[in-house]
C-alpha cells in the first residue's frame, strides 16, 4: 500500500456533494419523528418528507412506534442538492472561542497572575439568574461558570449592590473586569443604572486604567456600548465560555499583540 502525499488529494473543490462511500454519491442519513401511528401510511409520509428534503431515492430503513401516535424513522438516501463552498458565508466573532483549559493556559502563561473578575446586579435589581449563570460553578446549559476557571478569581457580590460598593469592591479585588447584570427594564432602569455605573468607574480610575466594564441582560442592544460607556454588552443566550473568551482576548491576547 502506498501513501499518497497530502497535497495531491486536496484540490480546491468548489462544488461538493455528501459522501457515503463513493465520491459524488450524495448519500445522507437522517432520523426524525412524525406524529402519526405506525402504519403503511406513516411510512409513506416519511418518504414524502425525505423527498421534500431533496432525498431521492429515499430508503426507509427503520420505523418504530413510540407511545401513542408517534413513529420514529431512519432514512438513507441520495440528496440532490449541491454545496457551493464559494458561496459559504461565515459570521466571524471578533474574538476566538476558547475552552476553559485554553483560557486558563493563556492567563497563566501570559498574565502570570489570576485574572480578577467582580460581578454584581446593581440598583434595585434582584434578578441574579443572569450573573449566577455566568459566574456560579453550576453555570448554564451544561457549561460551567467562571468560578470554575482555575486562573480566574471571581467575586460575585450578588443582588442590589450600590454603585459605590461595586467601585470599592472592584478596587479591593484589583478587578481586571467588572460584570454587571441587569434584568429589570421598567422605565429604562437598566440603561440608567448602567450609565451611572460607567460614570462612577470613569471618575474613580484614570483613563485607560479602569477595569473592563461588561453589562449583560436579555433586553440590552449589543450595539449601545459607546452610549452606555461600557466596553461590551452581552445579550440573551450568552454562555460563560463566551464571556471568558472575550475577557482573555481583550485583556491579554489583543493587548499583547498591540504592545509587543
Amino acid at each position: 500500500m502506498t501513501v499518497v502525499p497530502e497535497q495531491a488529494v486536496v484540490p480546491e473543490k468548489q462544488i461538493v456533494r455528501p459522501y457515503g462511500d463513493t465520491t459524488g454519491d450524495g448519500m445522507v442519513q437522517v432520523s426524525f419523528t412524525l406524529p402519526l401511528p405506525h402504519d403503511k401510511r406513516a411510512e409513506g409520509a416519511a418518504i414524502q418528507l425525505a423527498g421534500k428534503m431533496g432525498i431521492d431515492p429515499a430508503m426507509l430503513v427503520h420505523a418504530r412506534p413510540m407511545g401513542d401516535g408517534f413513529t420514529f424513522f431512519v432514512v438513507y438516501g441520495r440528496v440532490n442538492h449541491l454545496v457551493d463552498t464559494a458561496a459559504v458565508r461565515v459570521v466571524e466573532r471578533d474574538f476566538p472561542l476558547l475552552s476553559a483549559k485554553e483560557v486558563n493556559a493563556v492567563v497563566k502563561r501570559q498574565l502570570r497572575r489570576k485574572l480578577s473578575v467582580v460581578g454584581a446586579c446593581i440598583g434595585t435589581d434582584a434578578h441574579t439568574v443572569g450573573i449566577d449563570a455566568i459566574l456560579n460553578v453550576k453555570g448554564v446549559a451544561g457549561e460551567k461558570g467562571l468560578e470554575y476557571y482555575r486562573e480566574l478569581r471571581v467575586s460575585n457580590l450578588g443582588a442590589q449592590v450600590s454603585v459605590p460598593d461595586l467601585v470599592a469592591a472592584a478596587r479591593a479585588e484589583r478587578a481586571d473586569a467588572v460584570l454587571v447584570s441587569q434584568v429589570v427594564t421598567q422605565r429604562d432602569a437598566h440603561l440608567h443604572n448602567t450609565r451611572e455605573m460607567s460614570a462612577a468607574f470613569r471618575e474613580a480610575w484614570p483613563a485607560g486604567k479602569r477595569p473592563l466594564l461588561i453589562v449583560g441582560g436579555p433586553r440590552f442592544d449589543e450595539a449601545m456600548t459607546a452610549e452606555l460607556g461600557v466596553d461590551r454588552i452581552f445579550g440573551r443566550g450568552t454562555t460563560p465560555g463566551e464571556v471568558a473568551s472575550y475577557l482573555v482576548h481583550t485583556l491579554i491576547t489583543s493587548r499583547k499583540a498591540a504592545t509587543g
Partner: peptide, 14 residues
C-alpha cells in the same frame, strides 16, 4: 443528546 438539546421524544425512546 446530553449537552445538545433537551431530550426529544425519540431520544428518550432510544
Amino acid at each position: 443528546t446530553e449537552a445538545v438539546v433537551t431530550p426529544w421524544l425519540s431520544d428518550r425512546d432510544i
